[in-house]
C-alpha cells in the first residue's frame, strides 16, 4: 500500500453518511526498529473537506502566526476531525468509520 492510496479516500460513517476525505495520516514513531529509528506507524487519519487549507498545518498546531492566516485557515478547517486507526475499516475505495461522532484532531506539541 502507498500513502497516496489512503490520502483523498472518501470517509463514511457507520450508517454510510459522508464524513469527508482523508486529508492526512497521523504517524507515530513507535513501530518496529528499521535501521537507527523506530518505524513510523499509522495511528489515525485526519478527516475533513478542505485539503489545501489543511496542508498549511494550522489545524495541527497551537498558536502559529500570523494571526490573519491562522484565523482564516481555522475557519476553513473547522470541520476537520480525527479518526483513530482502531475505529476504522478499509474497504474497497473508501474508509468506513465505526463511530459516527469523530473527535477533534489532537494537536502536535
Amino acid at each position: 500500500m502507498r500513502g497516496a492510496d489512503l490520502l483523498g479516500l472518501p470517509v463514511v460513517g457507520p450508517g454510510g453518511e459522508d464524513l469527508g476525505r482523508v486529508l492526512d495520516v497521523r504517524l507515530v514513531q513507535d513501530g518496529p526498529i528499521l535501521g537507527a529509528f523506530a518505524a513510523l506507524r499509522i495511528e489515525g487519519l485526519v478527516v475533513g473537506r478542505r485539503a489545501l487549507a489543511a496542508r498549511l498545518g494550522y489545524d495541527r498546531y497551537d498558536a502559529q502566526g500570523p494571526w490573519l492566516v491562522a484565523a482564516g485557515v481555522a475557519r476553513l478547517t473547522r470541520g476537520t476531525r480525527y479518526l483513530p486507526w482502531a475505529d476504522l475499516q478499509l474497504t474497497d475505495g473508501e474508509v468506513r468509520s465505526q463511530v459516527a461522532d469523530l473527535g477533534p484532531v489532537p494537536k502536535i506539541a
Binding site: G3, L27, Q29, D30, R55, I108
Partner: peptide
C-alpha cells in the same frame, strides 16, 4: 512509551 508524532502530508511527503 509514545514516540514523536508526525503527519504524513505535513511532515514527510514532498
Amino acid at each position: 512509551m509514545t514516540g514523536r508524532v508526525r503527519d504524513l502530508a505535513l511532515h514527510l511527503l514532498d
